[in-house]
Amino acid sequence: MLSISPTYLLYYVPLLVAISLVYGATRHEDMNLVLKHAGYTAYWITSFMGVIFLILLVIGYLVS
């Protein structure tokens, strides 16, 4: 299903954490709200990429 090793996906985790926290912190001053916003951002990015992955998977299945 994947054309690369699943271990490559580990590169995604630290980036997701850093981007979510920094983005959340640029929207709020209260640290509780920063963490809440970061969680939502991480969820949103992962969902978005998951949808793109599924679309590409379906296209790959159809053309193969």
């Binding site: 954490v17 850093a18 926290l21 920094v22 912190a25 001053e29 640290m31 920063v34």
Partner: peptide, 8 residues
Amino acid sequence: KGGLYMVC
């Protein structure tokens, strides 16, 4: 926030 930015 400074610490968070610096670490991340």
